[in-house]
Amino acid sequence: MRIACPFCGERENGEFTYLGDASPKRPNFAVDGGESPERVEDAFYDYVYLRDNVAGVMREYWYHGGGCRSWLVAERNTVTHEFISVTAAPGAGAASAVRAGE
């Protein structure tokens, strides 16, 4: 399998590590915030454990650890293994970035 790193170009999949679904966003957790502990816990429960088992195109995190050490977001068809797009995580380079999920 070949993955096109947006920084390095097409590379063999052994240079990459798969993490999983890129859809869940880590809930913001304000220590003194108004949200009830139960709601925060439910949100984290969803974030940590609940995943769709997608047959088709899915957004996933991949890490180019054997290369430029960038975290990437790939759209991949889980049925055909075809990569539709690969883009960099918001903080991969040094550009100013806003916090994901905001």
Partner: peptide, 8 residues
Amino acid sequence: TTAVDHTA
């Protein structure tokens, strides 16, 4: 930046 023997 690449990998040789699984090493960067």
